[in-house]
Nucleic acid binder design. Structure first.
Lengths: 226, 226
DNA sequence: ACCTGAACACCGTTCAAGT
DNA sequence: ACCTGAACACCGTTCAAGT
């Protein structure tokens, strides 16, 4: 009642943040391909064109989704530990932000250098690589590779077939496992033996821990100063 | 004239291989999003529905495109050298097959375990990781990560914005470089300094050599036996 | 066997109006 | 300022025919 002018002009539910919420929910449930201007509009009981008041086009909407993910990165404070320990924590923070939304992770790659939180991640990465002894050019290239590898890790984590029902997804994984296990053991003995490991969604923490080990070990192995 | 029955029923130009050719050409020129049933049909002077004689749906067409790339892998023969040297050559062979088609590379990831050339790559990778001392489960996980990282490397190579004209692409890269260089040097000194390295398409061989170094060094660093 | 034609249920997006 | 409605140029795909 004693509403200020600002309160009087409050949106009834169609502001960019809530659209991004919906986009994330749709992508998590049905994949990035299901994120559609028309579908989001429908979820907000509004005409598709209403969204264009808030985003110039679909790409700008996806930018906002990526920004949301990048904004969730909880950057660890720099400290006095060896660079590779700090690097591990930094990369782990990036992973932690991406993991809840594997279907959306790939969007962040193109936006790392165009959003503030992404730039902060990049700056920290380059700083640690400098401490490791990398020349600036090398650091730029190798930093890109590592962040790229992490995003790929999340986008392609064993369960990420981006289907609808969790039941259907389990069935698909089970079928794939059976196909692999039935491979001719003369030609593909190791793939057949690894059928279980390649198709399980269990022990995801192991998967990610190993991925971090791999990335950090790579950086240490190539670094001028170890 | 003395045509066999087979020669008499030869296609006049609409066989799956030529459709895949077109799909690759379109993807290379205008990105994966431009690969459209209708556009491919048009290129072959045929109705969109004609393609459904050869592919059950669009996904099967993309499977064929991915198979084409995977089929280009020239697997090196196993020999007596240390596992990491053989691994490097194996990964380099995969990279060499992907590099000509960065816009398409990502398609291969989901198809590695469903195509014969992909399975051969996977089998070789697991074999070398076994020699390195990895337990089968670990080998499966880490092998996936590495192949994933390589695909990501190609998909996200500096020039890969998947635009049309090469001129337009250069302009986009130049603009991005300027934006990065103009970043507040107080907050993002290293990113600003790396603007050039992050946006150049020169020295791609360095980029890929470094990526291979990173991957192999990671595998060696994590391996039970080095 | 291979291709066509018309139709359906979707897209993103522009333009001109409405309040 | 914010939303609507109709329209346009695209999608993938089904179905029933044509030869």
């Amino acid at each position: 009642m004693v509403g200020t002018r600002k309160a009087a002009t409050v949106h009834r539910g169609l502001d960019p943040d809530r659209i991004v919420d919906s986009a994330l929910a749709v992508a998590d449930a049905d994949g990035l391909g299901a994120v559609t201007i028309r579908r989001l509009a429908q979820q907000h009981d509004v005409t598709p064109m209403a969204l264009y008041r808030h985003f110039r086009d679909k790409e700008e909407l996806l930018d906002a989704v990526a920004d949301r993910l990048l904004g969730e990165i909880a950057l660890p404070e720099p400290d006095g530990r060896p660079w590779h320990e700090q690097m591990r924590d930094l990369l782990a923070a990036f992973l932690a932000a991406l993991r809840p939304h594997p279907n959306v992770a790939q969007l962040t790659l193109d936006r790392i250098l165009t959003s503030v939180p992404g730039l902060m991640l990049a700056e920290r990465t380059l700083t640690l690589l400098d401490i490791a002894g990398y020349a600036p050019d090398q650091a730029a290239r190798i930093g890109r590779q590592v962040l790229c590898a992490l995003v790929g890790m999340v986008s392609n984590e064993p369960g990420a077939g981006q289907h609808g029902d969790p039941e259907e997804r389990d069935d698909a994984l089970h079928a794939e496992r059976a196909t692999l296990a039935a491979l001719p053991p003369r030609r593909f003995p190791r793939v057949a033996a690894a059928a279980e490991a390649l198709t399980t969604t269990d022990r995801q923490d192991d998967y990610y821990r190993l991925g971090l080990d791999l990335a950090v070990a790579g950086l240490r192995g190539v670094a001028p100063r170890s």
